[in-house]
Write a protein that binds this DNA or RNA. Structure first.
Lengths: 196, 196, 196, 196
DNA sequence: GATGAATGAGACTTCATTCAT
DNA sequence: AATGAATGAAGTCTCATTCAT
């Protein structure tokens, strides 16, 4: 990694959770300099503007949540276990997720709903990728007769909706059990979809 | 209504959707004056500060969503129909809700997650009220043998989570069918809970 | 007193010490409404503008300090006793004077030194009157052979300077004894001027 | 001097007399930008807020009055000449002092009497230092038998009171001779204190 | 590549004053 | 006479961004 690339990474890593907590408009350049120990000039030497930092911070936050989970899923050899593994992630990792400000997709989708087209597009792309991943597991399950026939599109979007809605409620009301319970309910549904 | 109360109402009505779309930090005094045609001095003559306008705007947005639905529910005489009526609201009213900037609870919960304690408290209070309303219908249903025995707390939070998560997805991806489908799935679940 | 004149008096009485404490610029219309319980419109119904209230408040503050003292002086039949009586006033009344914000002449002279010509002129006029009063006592004393020959103009201005400077120091340092000591020194000087 | 320190100095030097003339509340940010040719942002880049500028401006105004005089005093080798030199300063320098808005201590003491604790404390500290300086000269004089025994505390506070009161009168009435005459009277008193 | 002083637009807020009621 | 809602100018301060060094 060249010198400047290192600084870019430093800025992204140190500011990602701030953007996730305070939002794009609510995060100030001064937050970025405070968090990094760098000067404004240095931020602008490494990024075009605040928006570019926000964009990279969002990508980082998303990866932060996804990287490990993808690895774990790939190790499983059947679709049901993959889905269970995926859901299990939210049960074991809700603490660091909450500490990081909650789900980056949820936060950024709401934050960019008005204006900030670039960031909004990235969020949409990210949701699509997430959805595609779940769909591909479900297709694999149905094709290999591990799962009963279901409406894959409907089921996958319902999964995502429950997860996001549960994170919102659990975080806002400070009741993690809402997330845990709803995830467990989803797991039960999946077990019932299993072909005997 | 006295003159001052009229102006307060005007300000709230004209700015509520702006706050819902742009968030608290993202809505500027200039947005308020532009939307109302009033001067800054007039805004401050009628409200303590921007925060108070935001608070009232949130309440207004919530009522905007709730008033009609409560009325409709009260007309139903059994718990199942009440729940169906409640869910039906989201199927018939998603267009004005989306036009208004989406679900005020969702938006404001995310927006106020950092800072703005007053507004955050109001959001939490509002979710609690919403939850209590659903719980009371479910209790009524179980007591009158209209519904099978279920874990009421779990079911009610799961309903709210699905609705919120679905609004987020449907609005962000511009796919209202996600909301419609997930609502229909909930309706199916409720029908299955019916005592024969 | 007609009705409006009563309200004018009320405004003046209730706000005089505020102007004395906070100065012309530092006293806000809201201070005036708070102190009087009246509305802004009512203040403007009784006075041309804030400046006119300030002017009357200054006159009131000055009278507040002067009325009693003049009365006491007039009762004395020789110049030395008149001067002693005059000086004695500051020893016995420094508490209410300080509570009222200090010497109105001192405060207003400093406050109006830049801008506010009307008020400044009133202060100058007031000092002149004060000075004239002292001069007239001194002339009477010399004419009646109660006092040695002195430079009356010099002595009178020195008296005023010591009093004002002492009030400033005593109030700022919160050491009333500075005022008391300096007044006593002046009294000693006057006793020494007595013709035997 | 680094660039930032230069700008700070520029702001202080260019605005000190404005603060002295118009007071803390009466001096606006626009006065500061007009006087310096800088932008508001630049003022705030160099100072925490207006209060900090006012504080430094006061210190500057005080030094403006004091620096030269201290130097002159130190060159004298006996206490009487030190006192005479000190008093002489007001006779020779009243013009620039008046042009600068008068005595900074007097003006700021009155201005900050209500509110602005930081600035008020600085004024009190400054008066204490001034008083201590005079006291130390008087003690030296008594110890070295240059001066008769006197109550040093009383005499020193009387000196300061006369000077401040005289500046107030001379400036307000536009009669510098009041200051000159009262200073000369003080000089006479000091000469009479001389040990023969 | 980094600095940080300076910018200038615009943020929130408060002021004295007016005027329809 | 009194009200108090509305004004509009001006207040203090902060923002993202630029640029000479």
């Amino acid at each position: 990694m060249v010198r400047s690339e290192k600084t870019r990474q430093l800025i992204i890593e140190k500011t990602a959770s701030i953007f996730n907590k305070k939002g794009y408009t609510g995060t100030y350049l001064s937050d970025l300099t405070n968090a990094t120990g760098l000067t404004k000039g240095s931020i602008y030497g490494n990024f075009k503007d605040k928006n570019e930092v926000a964009l990279e911070a969002f990508k980082f936050n998303y990866k932060f949540q996804t990287r490990q989970i993808i690895d774990k899923i790939e190790k499983e050899d059947n679709s049901v276990n993959k889905l269970i593994t995926f859901l299990n992630h939210y049960k074991t990792s809700f603490k660091p997720i909450f500490k990081n400000g909650g789900c980056a997709i949820l936060n950024t989708a709401v934050d960019t709903d008005d204006g900030n087209e670039l960031l909004k597009k990235e969020v949409v792309k990210t949701i699509h990728n997430w959805h595609k991943k779940i769909v591909s597991i479900l297709i694999e399950g149905v094709n290999k007769n591990e799962l009963k026939e279901i409406d894959i599109d409907l089921f996958s979007y319902r999964m995502i909706a429950i997860i996001e809605g549960s994170i919102l409620l659990a975080k806002t009301l400070n009741k993690p059990e809402i997330l845990l319970n709803n995830i467990e309910h989803l797991e039960t549904e999946i077990i019932q979809l299993k072909q005997k």
